[in-house]
């Protein structure tokens, strides 16, 4: 029937017009909304997620006052490392054939440390550096005080101060790292185990000019 056909055509035309208007409205508003969302996200606290993020923060106190912030999701690092097959890196495993590890059985040392009680294992007090290695609650803690002044020192006008380095590695992560062959470091496995932790302070380096901090948590930002 001509009447009903006209009615149907009008409805189709109206629907098409509505769809076009909606689409244009969405497209015109999408960019500013996305921008505003980005700005709001930057201002508010980062949402927690199941994803684990590795954070690196570098602050230089010299005249340039450089600040570097790096936030990498562990899953991304793991997947990208796993897909690389180049040189010594083979699907998340690093070959260390040039390293002199023949004389030291790292796996045996790790096994011994794991089964031992918590405590201080190594203490070296020298003219240039003090080194302390201890085990505490499943963590291997390394503390180095470099007094040599040979570390990175940008402002040559000032005398080099001492540098404090703190490294905290869960023993299970170290275990996973050395889980492959004798001449391999299994970085992918180590990242897998690392990602089981919610929050972990890994490395801290501090001297009079620079502060470096590496840690992981579930936040997307460093605030």
């Amino acid at each position: 029937m001509p009447g009903s056909q006209t009615k149907r055509t009008v409805i189709i035309a109206a629907l098409a017009l509505l769809a076009t208007a909606l689409l244009l409205a969405v497209l015109l508003r999408a960019a500013p909304i996305a921008q505003a969302a980005g700005q709001t996200a930057a201002k508010t606290e980062a949402p927690a997620s199941a994803e684990r993020w590795l954070h690196v923060s570098v602050n230089c106190k010299n005249e340039d006052g450089e600040r570097v912030r790096v936030n990498v999701p562990i899953s991304l690092a793991r997947v990208v490392l796993g897909s690389i097959q180049k040189g010594k890196l083979n699907h998340g495993v690093i070959h260390i054939d040039n390293a002199h590890v023949d004389d030291i059985d790292i796996r045996a040392i790790l096994k011994a440390v794991k089964t031992s009680q918590d405590g201080e294992y190594v203490t070296v007090e020298g003219r240039d550096a003090n080194v302390q290695v201890r085990k505490q609650g499943g963590m291997l803690l390394i503390h180095v005080v470099d007094k040599s002044g040979k570390h990175i020192h940008i402002d040559k006008a000032k005398p080099a101060s001492q540098e404090n380095v703190d490294v905290r590695v869960p023993l299970e992560v170290a275990d996973a790292l050395f889980s492959g062959a004798a001449d391999e470091l299994n970085v992918s496995a180590a990242l897998d185990v690392l990602a089981r932790h919610d929050q972990l302070e890994l490395v801290s380096v501090q001297d009079s000019e620079n502060t470096v901090r590496i840690w992981m948590d579930t936040k997307t930002t460093q605030d």
Binding site: A37, G38, E51, E66, V68, P73, T220
Partner: peptide
């Protein structure tokens, strides 16, 4: 592989470098 993984990520600042002379900002937004 990296892009496929990045598609799953929420909004985040991946790299930020700030100094008096330059500012670099690499992020995932929407």
């Amino acid at each position: 592989v990296a892009l496929r993984e990045m598609e799953k990520l929420p909004d985040a600042v991946l790299v930020e470098v700030e100094s008096p002379k330059e500012h670099v900002h690499v992020a995932i937004q929407g």
